Simulated scan of single mutants.
Amino acid sequence: MEHFVWGTDPVALSFGSVRVFWYGIFFASAILSGLQFIKWVYKREGKSDESMDALFTYAVIGIVVGARLGHCFFYDPAYYLANPLKIIAVWEGGLASHGGGIGFIIALWFYVRKYKMNFIWLLDRATMPTAIFAFFVRMGNFMNSEIVGTKSELPWAIVFSRVDEFARHPAQVYEAISYLAIFFLLTYLYKTRTSLKPGILFGVFLTTVFSARFLIEFVKTKQAAYSTEIALSTGQLLSIPFLIIGVGFIIWSYKK
Rank of each mutant, 00 (worst) to 15 (best):
A171Q: 01
L232N: 03
K151N: 15
P155D: 03
S233V: 10
V247R: 02
M139A: 07
Q172L: 12
N144R: 09
Y226A: 05
I177G: 08
L206A: 10
I147S: 11
I216V: 12
R125N: 13
L154Y: 08
F184N: 11
V209H: 06
S145V: 07
G149R: 01
T208G: 07
V148F: 12
F133H: 09
I216P: 00
R125L: 12
F249M: 13
L185V: 14
F202N: 01
S152C: 11
G235A: 11
Q172W: 08
G149I: 04
T130H: 07
F136N: 02
P170G: 09
Q172F: 14
K222M: 15
L243S: 01
A131F: 01
L189M: 07
Y226P: 07
V163W: 05
P129I: 10
N141F: 06
I147G: 03
L123W: 00
S211L: 13
P155A: 03
F135R: 11
L186A: 00
G248E: 04
L232R: 09
Q172K: 12
D124E: 01
A131Y: 02
A224C: 06
V219H: 08
R193D: 13
E217S: 00
Y188A: 09
T150V: 15
T208V: 10
A225Y: 13
G235T: 08
I158P: 00
A126T: 13
I244F: 08
S178M: 12
A171M: 07
P155Q: 04
T228L: 14
T221M: 15
K191Y: 14
T130W: 11
D124W: 00
G149W: 09
E146M: 02
N144M: 12
S211V: 11
Y190V: 06
F136M: 09
D124S: 04
F202T: 01
T228E: 13
V137T: 10
A131S: 12
A181H: 04
L215R: 04
F142V: 02
V173D: 05
V219D: 06
L232S: 07
T192M: 14
F160G: 05
A131C: 11
L180D: 10
K222Q: 15
S233Q: 11
F142S: 04
I240V: 14
I200Y: 13
F210C: 07
L232A: 10
